[in-house]
Design a protein around this nucleic acid. Structure first.
Lengths: 339, 339
DNA sequence: CTTGGCACTCCCCGAACCCGAGTGCCAAGT
DNA sequence: ACTTGGCACTCGGGTTCGGGGAGTGCCAAG
């Protein structure tokens, strides 16, 4: 009972602060939410909440502001789900259905997510490690350059240019191509290294260096190296918070330019459902006053990658979570149709 | 003589303003540059320059600030070239030489350009319209999806997924693939449409829809649709201008998220050498207080695309121009080696 | 445990203010 | 015809001061 009201107060504080971006005081609280008690009572609750670390006051004699811990409690126990409207759902589906290839799906997804959450959006390409090779193509670009192209069953296409010391004959290239296809086609990525490892042994000594170069390029492509790719969008939303905020955008923009950082943000998503990292829970320096909400997408039994958004800690959690969740589901569906 | 000094004054104003970001007054001018005259004389010159529209004062009794017109004159007639140091050149070359494929060249270039100019960098992928087809591959992804991959002689790889109504046999796919290769391989893009247009006529009526779908996908890929692609980097530099500036970053970030806008910025580059667009000369709304410096890259006789940077009008023009120029040259060289 | 009252603390805002940098003009000098 | 020093004037920016107000913590009574 008592506990209940305290939590209600915390919820009210979070909601008001998210709406107004200003510290909220006891009087304003009782006016806007109809808790059936007096401001004085609320003040006692607030003092208790502050002791427990859920809220803080920026200055003496100012209102209260939620702490990271406060948001955490709000997200875990207090926030309901705010389902998307059905026009919204239709718009999402329609927009994603129009995509013509994987690149298009990814770029549409990131734009969509940024637009509906009004925040910075992140989308990771389907991971290669759980995919298989559909086809391998090896083509001569010039007398000293080959290009090897791997077509993945998710529709992703990876390529790599190989410099070779000396010219090779078309026959050698054709042979190499045929053997690569025979060895790797249809195989899951994890099996490819073993399948192609000994391939160069079949060639004349003269051609072995080329074979080895090609094989090692393929190996690089199917192992972690090229695996991860993240697209980013909606950075303009960062500038929306009139300078009034401690959210200095420069470090955030800097962090978001590093692929490694993006992968850390998306990668640490916990197994199922939605992951919410609030403020300092965040593994990345410079993003201490942002929250990151991510979801996995792909088959339920076998997620292929993650997507999510980055925004200020004082964001609309229920709405954002719902949006991320919905987009992840629709993307999963689109990609499933491909498989 | 008189004219000479006025221009020297303009140059001094631009240089000081770029360095300090503060309106510059007559007294400070004579102190920092050794023009052999008194502040009063400078004041007369400044009044004249203001009448002619090259400089302006933000408020009465403040120093002067260059106008767009002033920067224009500075760039056209006053700025020397500020060559890069040889360690810088070496670093550029080395960094680009390590690239493993075209995507890598592009992403390295954009990072490089952003880093050395400390501004937002833009790099356009080599245009397809002046390239030729090296190889075409057609692969079955699932019973109702094909993927067609076009390998371009610049090392660029384009792909597209095709939905088909009904399953097709492997034989049909193989046939289609062979005919595509025969018709298009080695041809410049401009010749491809004619070469593949009648391809579907060779097929049984049952297979014609599939053939047509594939052909039209190829046509879309070689014509304007997928042609243009721009990568962007260094947006964090936008936030560097402490709020002191009229450069509201939100509209800039917004503009830079539109591929169309990026293409307009890069596309309108004049034929040869470096293009500099200052402030309102800029074709894009929201970028009125930024300048854009672009250069074409590729073979001298046949440039393939553009790259450049976007920064505040009060940028270091000589340095930035030199950097853009140098990077364009090195990228050209790298790509030439491929051809 | 709740509530009204009350004293206290700061933050924010506006007004008044001064200071200094910078200008424009003018009259004298070269 | 320019250049120069002098001089009055303007105006933006920083500082100080004080009041108003929102909000708090505590206490004593219900």
């Amino acid at each position: 009972m008592l506990e209940d009201r305290r939590l209600a107060v915390l919820r009210a504080i979070v909601e008001d602060y998210v709406a107004t971006h200003e510290p909220v005081g006891s009087k304003a609280l009782v006016e806007r939410h109809n808790l059936g008690v007096s401001p004085a009572t609320i003040r006692n609750d607030m003092a208790a909440l502050e002791d427990e670390g859920y809220i803080a006051q920026p200055h003496t004699s100012a209102g209260r502001v939620p702490t990271d811990l406060g948001y955490r409690l709000f997200v875990d126990r207090l926030s309901g789900v705010k389902p998307l409207s059905s026009p919204e759902r239709r718009a999402i589906q329609q927009f994603l259905d129009d995509a013509v290839d994987l690149d298009d799906v990814m770029s549409r997804t990131v734009r969509l997510l940024a637009q509906i959450t009004r925040q910075v959006a992140l989308v990771q390409y389907p991971s290669l490690s759980r995919s298989s090779v559909r086809h391998i193509e090896l083509v001569t670009l010039s007398s000293t350059r080959l290009i090897v192209v791997v077509i993945v069953d998710t529709g992703r296409v990876e390529q790599r240019i190989i410099e070779i010391g000396a010219p090779v004959t078309d026959a050698t290239v054709a042979d190499l191509r045929a053997r690569l296809i025979a060895a790797a086609s249809g195989k899951p990525f994890s099996d490819v290294p073993a399948a192609v490892a000994e391939l160069d042994a079949a060639f004349e000594p003269d051609d072995r260096p080329v074979a080895r170069a090609v094989v090692s390029a393929v190996l690089e492509m199917v192992t972690e190296r090229g695996e991860e790719r993240v697209v980013l969008g909606g950075t303009a939303h960062l500038a929306r918070y009139g300078e009034s905020f401690p959210l200095a955008i420069q470090p955030v923009l800097e962090a978001l330019e590093e692929q490694v950082v993006l992968l850390r943000l998306l990668g640490e998503a916990s197994a199922g459902g939605i992951t919410v990292r609030i403020g300092h829970e965040n593994p990345v320096e410079g993003l201490g006053s942002t929250s990151v909400i991510t979801a996995r997408y792909g088959r339920v039994d076998q997620p292929v990658a993650s997507l999510g958004v980055v925004g200020p800690t004082h964001m609309d959690y229920p709405g954002t979570i719902a949006a991320v969740h919905a987009v992840a589901r629709y993307v999963s569906r689109i990609l499933d149709e491909t498989a």
